[in-house]
Each structure stands twice: as C-alpha cells, then as structure tokens.
Design a protein around this nucleic acid. Structure first.
Lengths: 213, 213
DNA sequence: TAGATTGTTAATCGATTAACAATC
DNA sequence: TAGATTGTTAATCGATTAACAATC
C-alpha cells in the first residue's frame, strides 16, 4: 500500500504541523517559509523540510509553502479527508467525556455508539446515543462499519474486550486502559496512558524544577 | 540538583517499567531477569539494563532483579514516594472526569481543587470539592501548596491561565488544551493532546491497515 | 536576472543493540 | 566452584542537523 515506510517519529510530529498550519490559516497567513515556521514551532527548519519531503515536494523554491495548501495536504496524509466511525467501550466519566467531545467530529471522527457492561448505565444517553449492553458489541461493529473503538474501561476487562473487537473486524483501538494490548498485526493501537503521563510529570518536577528559595 | 542528565527517551519508558513491575509483584513474582522482562515487555534486555543503570545498579549478577525492590526504587525515581497536590482548571466533562479519577491518589497525586470561569458551574461539586471561581486561583495555589495544575479548558484561554499559574508559583502543568504552552524554564509541562493522538491513529489506519477482502 | 528558499545529500549526533568481562 | 546474569564498553543503527546545488 505504501511506497516508503515513514518513521513513527515523523508521524508523531504531523498533527503538530497540522495544528500550527490551521492556526496560521485562521489568522489569514498565506505563505510561510520553513525558517519562519521553525521559529514558531521551536524546531529546526531542516527537520520541517525533511519531514514534509517524506510525502512530496509541497513547497516552492524562493517562495516557501502555501499555508492553506499545506494544511490540506497534511490533512489528507493524516486521513482526515475520510470519515471514521468510532464507538466508546466504557460509559464511565472518561468515556462520557470523550463522547461529548464534539471537536472530534470536525476532523471526521463520528461518535457512533457507546457500550457498558453495567446494566444501570445501559439505556442512559450520551450525546443523544443510548448506552448499549456489551452483548450487542460484535453485531454493532459489523453492521455500522465501525473503524475505531475507544477503550475507557478498567484494565481487568481490556484484553478480553480487545479480542472481541478484533474478532468483529475493528481497524483500530484508542486505548485508555492502563494496560498494553496484544493485537494482531494490522490492527492499530494508540495508547493514552494517563497515569504514565502523570508519572513523567512527577519525574520532571522532582528532577528539574527550580527550587524555590 | 542532578548528577547526570537522563534522556527523555528513558523517562518516557520508566512508568511502563513501573507498571509491569507492579503487575509482577501483584502476581507474587519475586525475581526477574532482564531477559524475562524483555520478553514480557517486548523490548530488548539490553535496553532494560541500560535504562536501569542510569539510576544505579539495582540487580545482582547471576540472580537478576528483585521485583519488589526494583518496583519501589523506580517509584522513588519517579517521585511517587512524595505527595503532589493538583488542581484542575476547567470543570467541563474532561475536568470532572479527571477529578473523579481516584486511582491518581494511590500514586500520591491529591485532588485539591477545581476551578471554572462559568458562574453556573461555580459552587457545584466534583468528588466533594466545590468548583471555585477563577478569581480565587492565585491565592488558592499559594495557600495550599499546589504543585500541579491540570488544564482542561479550551485553547483560547490556555495561554493566559498558564501565565497566571506560573505567576502563582505552580511547578508543573498537565496540559490537555490543544495548544502548546510557553512557560519559563524550570516549569514542567506534559501535554496530552488528545486530538493529535487520534490523528496519529487515523494516519496509521490509512497507511498500515490490512485491507479487508 | 538576483535573491530566496526549497529539496536532498552528507555529516553529526544520540539512542539502541550487541558483546563480554566482572561478579554474585 | 560453575552457571547465570548483571553492569558497562564498543558497535550499530536511525534520526536530526548542516550544507548546498537546484530552481522558482
């Protein structure tokens, strides 16, 4: 499918370029050089040019890059020109918060369903959608062309649910459970381990903070 | 303050070691070799030994590592033996979800306050704590020895709030706003850009998913 | 055209892996 | 002691930065 393997270090940075270009564009900036963008983003101009040239020559010598054009190109590279349907497994606080997050829709991510094993939650609504019982999971995924499952359940149940999702043909899992999932090749997993993130913050506080006098 | 600069690549991995050691320990495993751990975590044994030796010799030749001892040592390195008080700025869905997240307490992160600029939210409660108006921010941070501010507000207000936090002597910001913050050296920032994460997932779906036949 | 800035090759830097002597 | 496995040095690999020819 792909001509060249792009390193995940580059993929990691793409959304950040997208974010800055969106901002520039909203501010009516028409063109930008790698030098100017590098100052804004605090990275090297070299890195910007290298990163972009993984996907093609989007700039023009002597001119720089057209902001709007580059914005749309990166959007396409990220697959944001396509719609992605997602469901949320786990209607707890975090699951409901993500379901209510309307900004995802603007990037083509469509909130299509939410599930929970707790009978007391089943039937309640999150942004207009009913919380469904876990028994309906496989069928729902198949019949509604779901691409992404958002896992906001305790780690104990995560492995089993992941397996069921893979069995129903899900393409990707956005994993908020505090455990690493084991899925077959070709199924994409993106982890958001919040407590790992908080621990890193703790490390940096304890090792790099200026002591107050 | 520090003897040696530890690369952020290593810091990034520390919480994951901590997570696996916790698991092993809960399963009653007493000792483990870098080889065994490497198979479990799917990294090289070399990397594990290199990473750990940044902080000292925790193992013993011919034996391996004592799980419980290593767990506690990494905990100390991460600063989890100390208490950290945090406040949440932004009592929307995400802010409230994080406030209700009791697991953080187990690692020494104490939910100490929550703020919002919306008058309608002020006075409502999140896990027993009242939502406070933004005017009280600086004073509260100073008087309650707050280390960490969790930013769950729209990007428009983020820069201003960050500045106020820095002015009140906050040590660290856990940033969920979709914008990069500009803070002085010595103030730690850990970003959780959820939409960036979702876009990476989208990229990988579109570039690496097995096509279904 | 001359000046600016890209696209791309080459050089450097840092992180990962391999290897092995030290040692429990 | 012999076997196992660490701690650590050396080799490799990949990512970042610098440099510059191509070209708008």
């Amino acid at each position: 499918m792909e001509e060249k393997e792009i390193s995940q270090a580059v993929v990691q940075r793409l959304p950040r370029y997208f974010r800055y270009l969106d901002e520039l564009r909203n501010n009516g900036v028409e063109r930008i050089s790698s030098q100017e963008l590098s100052e804004l983003m605090k990275v090297t101009a070299s890195q910007i040019r290298q990163d972009l040239n993984n996907f093609g020559g989007f700039g023009q010598q002597g001119y720089g890059y057209n902001v709007d054009f580059l914005y749309h190109e990166i959007g396409k590279i990220l697959g944001l020109d396509k719609k992605h349907h997602f469901i949320i497994i786990g209607a707890g606080n975090l699951g409901r918060a993500l379901g209510n997050y309307i900004k995802f829709e603007r990037r083509g991510f469509i909130f299509s369903g939410i599930f929970d094993q707790d009978e007391k939650l089943v039937g309640s609504f999150v942004r207009g959608l009913p919380v469904r019982p876990m028994e309906e999971l496989e069928r729902f995924v198949r019949e509604n062309d779901i691409d992404i499952a958002v896992l906001t359940i305790p780690k104990a149940g995560a492995a089993e649910v992941a397996e069921r999702l893979v069995g129903s043909g899900i393409k990707a899992i956005w994993n908020f459970a505090h455990v690493d999932l084991n899925v077959p090749d070709g199924i994409q997993v993106e982890n958001v381990h919040l407590s790992d993130s908080l621990m890193r913050l703790s490390y940096n506080i304890n090792h790099y903070s200026q002591e107050k006098t």
